[in-house]
Every structure is written in structure tokens, then in C-alpha cells.
Amino acid sequence: MPTTQHISIDTDRCIGSGQCALTAPRTFTQDDDGFSALVPQPAGAPADPLAREAARACPVQAITVSED
């Protein structure tokens, strides 16, 4: 069974540095205001191995990644 990845972005904490989008562009983008947003994924899409690295790259730790 494939791993399900849950990603949350604390929009109150995000400062729009763009490190997440640079690190994991398949998963993260920036919205019209320059803040972090998730790229829509099709149902059953595989977990992005770079998502955890993107969370670590966030200068304000606004991203949480969990898997089950």
C-alpha cells in the first residue's frame, strides 16, 4: 500500500521566502500574494520525497509533513 503524505502550511507563519517551492516544486508553489501553497495532486499520487526537505528548508518552520 502506498504511503499517504499529509502536508500542512501554517499560513499565519509563512513569510513567502519561496524555499519550499524551490526545493519541492512538484508539491509547493506560491500563491498570488507570494505565500506558500500546495500544488493540487491527483488522487493516489505518490508521496514527494522532497516535501520533508522543503519543510526543513522553511526559515520559519511553517510546513508540517506527516505520513501514514
Score class of each variant (00 low, 15 high):
Gln19Thr: 10
Gly34Thr: 14
Ala47Leu: 06
Arg52Gln: 15
Leu22Glu: 12
Glu53Asp: 13
Asp33Met: 11
Gln41Asp: 09
Gly44Ile: 12
Leu38Gln: 11
Gln19Ser: 13
Ala43Asp: 10
Ala43Phe: 03
His6Ile: 15
Thr23Met: 14
Val60Gly: 04
Phe35Cys: 09
Arg13Gln: 11
Gln19Lys: 06
Ile9Glu: 05
His6Ala: 14
Gln19His: 10
Thr3Leu: 07
Ile15Leu: 08
Gln30Gly: 13
Ala57Tyr: 01
Ala45Gln: 07
Gly44Glu: 06
Gln30Lys: 15
Gly34Val: 13
Ala54Phe: 07
Thr27Val: 12
Ile7Ala: 15
Pro59Ala: 02
Val65Met: 02
Pro42Gln: 13
Val39Cys: 07
Asp33Ala: 14
Ile63Val: 03
Cys14Ala: 12
Ala24Asn: 13
Val39Phe: 11
Cys14Glu: 02
Ser17Met: 02
Ala55Leu: 08
Cys58Pro: 08
Phe35Val: 10
Pro40Thr: 15
Ser17Leu: 08
Ala45Thr: 05
Pro25Lys: 14
Ala24His: 06
Ala55Ser: 07
Ser66Val: 10
Arg56Ile: 08
Met1Arg: 08
Pro49Gly: 08
Asp48Ala: 04
Ala47Gly: 12
Asp10Pro: 01
Glu53Thr: 15
Ala57Gln: 13
Val39Ser: 12
Asp33Lys: 09
Gly16Met: 09
Pro25Gln: 05
Gln30Asp: 05
Arg52Gly: 08
Asp32Cys: 10
Asp31Phe: 01
Arg26Val: 03
Ile9Phe: 02
Thr29His: 04
Val65Ile: 03
Gly44Asn: 03
Glu53Trp: 03
Phe28Ala: 13
Asp31Ile: 09
Asp31Gln: 09
Glu67Val: 07
Phe28Asp: 06
Ser66Lys: 00
Ala45Arg: 07
Phe28Gln: 12
Thr29Pro: 07
Ala45Glu: 02
Cys58Met: 10
Arg56Ala: 09
Pro42Ile: 14
Asp10Ser: 06
Thr23Cys: 05
Arg56Gly: 06
Glu53Lys: 12
Val39Gln: 10
Pro40Cys: 05
Ala24Gly: 04
Ile15Met: 13
Asp31Asn: 15
Gln61Lys: 10
Ala55Phe: 05
Leu22Cys: 01
Ser66Leu: 07
Thr3Asp: 08
Asp31Trp: 02
Ala57Asp: 02
Arg52Ile: 15
Pro2Tyr: 00
Asp31Val: 07
Ala55Pro: 01
Cys20Thr: 07
Ala62Ser: 07
Cys20Ser: 06
Ala57Trp: 00
Pro2Arg: 03
Ser8Cys: 14
Gln19Trp: 05
Asp33Ser: 13
His6Lys: 03
Arg56Thr: 05
Gln41Lys: 15
Ala43Leu: 08
Arg52Trp: 00
Arg26Gly: 12
Ala43Asn: 04
Thr23Arg: 14
Ala55Asn: 04
Arg52Val: 06
Arg56Asn: 09
Arg26Met: 10
Glu53Cys: 09
Glu53Leu: 10
Thr27Cys: 09
Ser17Glu: 01
Leu50Asn: 13
Ala43Tyr: 00
Cys58Leu: 09
Val60Met: 00
Gln19Asn: 13
Arg26Tyr: 01
Ile63His: 04
Ile15Asp: 03
Asp32Ala: 15
Gln5Cys: 11
Pro42Ser: 14
Thr29Asn: 04
Val65Leu: 02
Thr27Lys: 12
Ala54Ser: 08
Thr4Ala: 15
Ala62Ile: 00
Thr64His: 02
Met1Phe: 09
Arg13Ser: 12
Gln19Arg: 11
Ile15Val: 14
Gly16Gln: 14
Asp12Ile: 07
Thr4Val: 14
Met1Trp: 05
